[in-house]
Structure formats: structure tokens, C-alpha cells
Computed example of a mutant assay.
Amino acid sequence: MFDALDERWWRAGSSLNWWDCALAEPPSWLPAPEPARAWLMRHPKPLTAALALIRSHRTCETSQLNALDPRLPGDARARLWMSMAACRLIDLGFPLRVDGRTAFGPHAAWMGVRLPVHREISPELPRLGLSAVEIADIGPGPLRGARQYDRHNLIATGLAVKARSDGWLTAGEAWCRFDRICADPLMGGGGPDLALIGERDLVCVELTASMGQTLEDKFRRWDRVLAHRACDRVSVVWLAAGRGPDNREILKRLGGLCDGRPRQHAADAADWMGRIACVDGWEPEPGSPVADDAWMRRDMTRLGRVYGMPAAGDWRLPERLAGRWIG
């Protein structure tokens, strides 16, 4: 799988070379829109699964998406990704080359995907045959690209893959809002980069690649969140995700800020790709988490009996309600 911590991809900067579907002309290697639309209409499940995961994690690489959901192809040249781009549902990103030459196309070393940053795709989805329930399952809010830090988001997605393999349920940045974590609209819309959902505990992950003046403010905000009555089982792990020798100083700074904060811990992002443990010895365990898939299935079954449709309990229900993933 693609490793976002591999420094060779970021020698020319921490951003990707993006093909913006709202602004750029389609390259020759994309299929024509009409055949692409017809293909997507015949394959709604991988389409909605891809859009939901991309929305959740902001920026993803195709092999990461395959690791999160094996129904999605890891090959950047796969029909799914090319059809979604041809229908202008996603932007495509490629690594920048230090020699200044353009590495552009699915034949490049790897390919990132994101929701379009300059257009809203919600109006397009009913035209592809998706139901209102399927569209809602992609996630709340506008379906367009949000705050993008490519290296940052790709590392977080890789950490989600690692956590899934260890038994955690995960939720990406788009789902990790303070008002949802606390079940309190007054807590605001910010939040961590990733959440690990265990049988008993919720571990919120914050990636840090610099030591800006706002770092202490972020710690104080988490102090307020962790003091909320709904967060007695929530912990925060601050992962140092800097580049080169700077990362040691970042980790040292994070460790100092975590001192005296019993539910805030520091670790190195690269170390977490191998073993989920913190520098103070704290090592969270997932237990046996189970996604709650019963609430809507019960309601659909009941309505099916009322209206004479006994199979309604399984009718096109989103994959998340079958316990496959959270977000």
C-alpha cells in the first residue's frame, strides 16, 4: 500500500499536482462522459462507498481506499476512478516531481482522489440513479472538497487502514466534529483528523506537522472537550507527523504539552504505522467494537410489513448500516 510517510513523494512540497474537474479540460485518457455515466449507473454500491470514504478522509490514495473497502479497486487505472473523473465527481492528484517535469496520469506512481473543490456534486447523484437514502449515507453537508492538506490527509487515511487491521472501527475527519463527539451542538464544528472507535473507548487522533502559535490553543480546546460530560471515555493522541529532524522536536513539544493531561498522549506517526502505542506507555486496545446496524433495519422491516413489502428490511440499505464501516 502507498506510504504517505515516504519522504520521496514530498521533496517538491506537501501538495499534489491536481487535475481540477471543475476547471480543467478532460485529458485524453479519460473515457467519454456518457459511457462513464452508464457504467456508474450499473455499479451504484462501489460508487457510493467511494464517495463516502473520500468525503470522510478528504484526500485518499486508491490503494488506501482498496484497503479500507476491498470492493474498491486499488489500481488508479480502474474503470471506477476513470468513470468518476469523467463524470466530474472527483479531482485526481499526482505526486509532484522534483525535476519539474509533469507526472500526470493514472500511469504515475500513484494517484490521489478528492471531492471537487470548485463544484458541488449533489445535483449529479440522482441523475446516476442513487436514491435519497444512498445519497444521505455519503455524509451530511455539502459534497465538495473541504480543507485540503494532501500529505496530512493521506497520512491520516493510512493510519485509518492500520487501525482497521488492528480491529478498530474508524471515522475520518469529516465525521469527527466536536458537536457529534459530545452530542452537543454548542461544542462547535472543529474536530480531530481521525477517530478510532473501540468497544469501550473513543481515541481521537490529531496529526501535527509544525509547532505554530495555535498549538497550545488546540490543547486547551481539547481540555474543554474532554471535560464535557459525554466524553468520559474519550482520549486524544497527538501524533508528530513532521518531516526529517524537525519531527523529533515536534514530538518533544507534544510530550511536554501532554504532561499533566492524563487523557492526552503523544506519539510518533511513523511508529503508529507499526504499533499503536504512545511515548508515555499508554497503549489503547480496540476490544470487539460492533457497529449498531439495527435501528434503521428494524424500522424498515416494520414498514415493510405495514405496506406489504416483507423484504423492505434489506431494500438498498446503506453498507454502513450492515456494520461494514462507520465513516
Rank of each mutant, 00 (worst) to 15 (best):
T170C: 07
G190C: 01
C182M: 04
T170Q: 09
L196V: 03
R147M: 07
L154E: 02
L194H: 08
A160H: 13
G190I: 00
A195R: 12
A156N: 07
D179V: 06
P192V: 07
E206S: 07
D150I: 02
G191V: 08
G158C: 13
A160Y: 13
L196S: 00
G172L: 11
R151D: 01
H152N: 03
I197S: 01
N153S: 15
A209E: 15
R151V: 03
P192Y: 12
A156Y: 08
A183S: 00
T208N: 10
P185V: 09
P185D: 09
D201F: 11
T170H: 06
K162Y: 09
D179F: 12
A209I: 12
C176E: 09
D179S: 11
T208L: 07
G189Y: 13
Q148G: 04
G189L: 11
L196A: 03
L186F: 15
L194F: 06
L169E: 04
A209D: 15
D184W: 12
E206C: 06
R200K: 12
A163C: 07
A156K: 07
E199S: 08
G145E: 05
L196D: 01
G158F: 11
E206W: 08
D150G: 01
L202S: 08
G191R: 14
D184I: 14
L194N: 03
G167A: 01
L194M: 07
P185C: 05
R151G: 02
D201M: 10
A146Q: 13
G158H: 13
R164F: 00
S210R: 15
A163G: 10
P192C: 05
D201K: 09
H152V: 08
D193G: 09
A183E: 01
W175C: 01
A195W: 08
A146M: 08
I181R: 02
E173V: 03
R200H: 15
I197W: 07
G158W: 11
R177V: 04
L207R: 14
E173N: 02
L159F: 14
Y149K: 14
P192W: 11
L196E: 01
C204M: 09
D201R: 12
A174S: 08
V161D: 02
T157W: 12
G198I: 05
L169R: 09
T208R: 14
T157C: 15
D150A: 02
M187T: 15
G167W: 02
A163R: 08
R180T: 10
V205Y: 06
R164E: 00
N153D: 14
E206T: 10
P185S: 11
W168G: 00
S210C: 13
Y149T: 06
F178K: 08
V161P: 03
G190F: 04
P192K: 11
D193N: 10
Q148P: 00
G190Q: 07
A160R: 12
S210G: 11
T157I: 15
G190Y: 05
V203G: 01
A160P: 10
D184V: 13
